[in-house]
Design a protein around this nucleic acid. Structure first.
Length: 501
RNA sequence: UGUCAUGUGGCCGAGUGGCGAGGCAAGGGUCAGCAAAACCCUUAACGAUGGUUCAAAUCCAUCUAUGACAGCCA
């Protein structure tokens, strides 16, 4: 069976065939580091992490490029032309790059919490200004962009005229036609610079107060929103690469514009497979500032957002996301997260127990149908992954096996019911799919507060033992704690303290 | 308003026309000093109305509700 993924470009599931096997190039749009990452960011990065992991598992040599947008773009194109990062920096009295650094660190921290593998290359927009300028120059030379008052715009109408004849109209990815947009695009103020309202900026002239600015053939300014991804993808993955990923909200206009830019420069569609994850909603609503329901990842992990009734661990959130297929919307609620938390614990308890067992392959099975059923569940795991990353089905099968494992643990079934070889297969495949493919790691459920409580309890028991002159017990507690790296010390005043070594 | 999606049991979510995924919750039972866990069993859904079909959650049409995009957004 071969890996099939849904290609937004062709609107169907397609068998994945790399251009240049075993090499695979994958580009995923990363975050704008003008603020802290929120729950919405978690989905694409976890989704594409799983795709990355699965491609690696299949034996591909993957170059995974995920950018960091640190240049800031216009909040409202044409109207205010204000740099998001700069404006926030003034509010916080931080240098723009200081702010970028701060949020980049926080973003990396969150990615690490989720157990996402780092990408192969993580280029920044500000590190590729030259490449972006070169690309814009090329687009202008070919006549698909024009300068107006120090800014450069992409000529969408002209592009559409020329490339419609080559079966590649503007709107090829999003399924929009240009005529509709010309009719319905809202009239924004101050658009006189553009020949047409559908045109988008490649380079923007920097207003005097703008801190982030670079010298260009058109004066001082900063790059437009879309050009960075085209420039960096081309630089690191070539003119044509395998997979381009991102959130569904980026499909239009961002990815559409990327296609137009790259096509003009490189004379071909930049990527073969366009993969888009769907959005996360909160209690049925989209996350957005106006709804006051944007949950930052740090708030999610410590439960500090008012919408949350408790904290949720990174693995709970990861598991929650993987319980659905990436192309559907996923509704977040406390109830749903709590369900995931409990479910994950049950799954991992069973898995960890099984992992610690040893089986000998000589043992024959006494329950052939159960033996066969386990093999079937395990063998279906790759099939589900290869059907457009149906992690929901993978998880469902994992849960089918939990009662069997627990029955073995509680001796409701005998160890001989299933052959040793099958148990070994189950062990190996569960490790592969839970840890490697889904990227779920064992979380220690014990926090410091609980641990301290336990130590105090042991200290109390030791005190009681000493009072009864049961020194065997008291020494056992002290010595074994010491072996675990916890040293308890009897103070002169009779109090007991402890330190972790 | 345009474009595109979506509507599955109390909640979250899979579903490739043909014996009702899975998780959480709920009810009953086994086990058990109590509790928890675990195991077994049970309940329950396919937005509405038509249509195609031997057979539809699944295909078609209309309606309805919700959402996304069209300006930033994962």
């Amino acid at each position: 069976m071969a890996l099939k993924i849904y290609n937004s470009l062709t609107r169907q599931k397609e068998v994945f065939e790399p251009i240049n096997a075993p090499y695979v190039g994958m580009y995923v749009c990363g975050p704008t580091v003008s603020g802290e990452s929120h729950l919405g960011h978690a989905r694409p990065f976890i989704t594409f992490d799983v795709l990355y992991r699965y491609l690696l598992h299949l034996g591909y040599k993957v170059r995974y490029v995920r950018n960091i947008t640190d240049a800031g773009h216009f909040e409202e194109e044409g109207k205010v032309a204000e740099d998001k990062i700069t404006s926030k920096a003034i509010l916080e009295k931080l240098e723009p790059m200081e702010l970028v650094q701060k949020y980049t660190h926080l973003y990396h921290w969150a990615m690490d919490q989720f157990n996402n593998l780092p990408p192969s290359i993580e280029p920044t927009a500000t590190g590729h200004i030259i490449e972006q300028i070169e690309m814009i120059k090329k687009i202008m030379t070919d006549g698909f962009a024009y300068e107006a008052n120090g800014s450069v715009y992409f000529d969408v109408i002209k592009y559409n005229e020329v490339y419609s004849k080559k079966n590649q109209p503007y709107g090829i990815l999003s399924g929009r036609n240009l005529e509709d947009q010309l009719d319905t695009t809202r009239e924004l103020d101050n658009q006189d610079e553009k020949k047409n309202k559908v045109d988008f900026a490649l380079w923007k002239k920097a207003p005097v107060e703008h801190i982030m600015r670079w010298q260009s053939p058109w004066g001082e300014g900063f790059p437009g929103w879309h050009i960075e991804c085209s420039a960096m993808a081309t630089k690191y993955l070539g003119k044509k690469f395998d997979i381009h990923g991102g959130g569904m909200d980026l499909q239009f206009p961002h990815h559409e514009c990327e296609i137009a830019q790259s096509t003009v420069c490189n004379h071909e569609l930049p990527a073969r497979y366009w993969v888009h994850n769907n959005m996360i909603t909160i209690n049925g609503r989209k996350m957005g500032k106006s709804y006051n329901n944007v949950v930052k990842l740090s708030e999610l992990f410590d439960g500090s957002h008012p919408i949350l009734t408790q904290a949720y661990s990174p693995m709970t959130v990861r598991f929650f996301i993987l319980q659905s297929q990436y192309r559907g919307t996923l509704d977040f609620s406390n109830e749903a997260l709590q369900a995931s938390e409990k479910a994950l614990r049950r799954l991992m308890d069973a898995y960890e127990w099984l992992k610690a067992q040893s089986f000998t392959s000589e043992k024959k099975s006494t329950d052939a149908s159960l033996d066969q059923q386990l093999k079937t569940w395990v063998n279906e795991l790759p099939e589900f992954m290869e059907d457009d990353l149906n992690t929901a089905k993978v998880v469902a099968n994992l849960f089918e096996m939990v009662p069997v494992i627990n029955s073995l643990k509680d001796k409701h079934i005998t160890a001989e019911a299933v052959s040793g070889a099958t148990w070994q297969l189950v062990q190996a495949q569960l490790t592969l799919f839970i840890e490697q493919v889904l990227g779920i790691k064992v979380e220690s459920g014990v926090n410091k507060k609980q641990l301290n409580g336990v130590i105090h309890l042991l200290i109390d028991i030791r005190k009681e033992a000493k009072a009864k002159k049961d020194f065997a017990t008291s020494d056992k507690i002290r010595n074994q704690l010491l072996e675990m790296g916890i040293q308890i010390k009897d103070e002169k005043d009779g109090e007991v303290s402890f330190t972790f070594s």
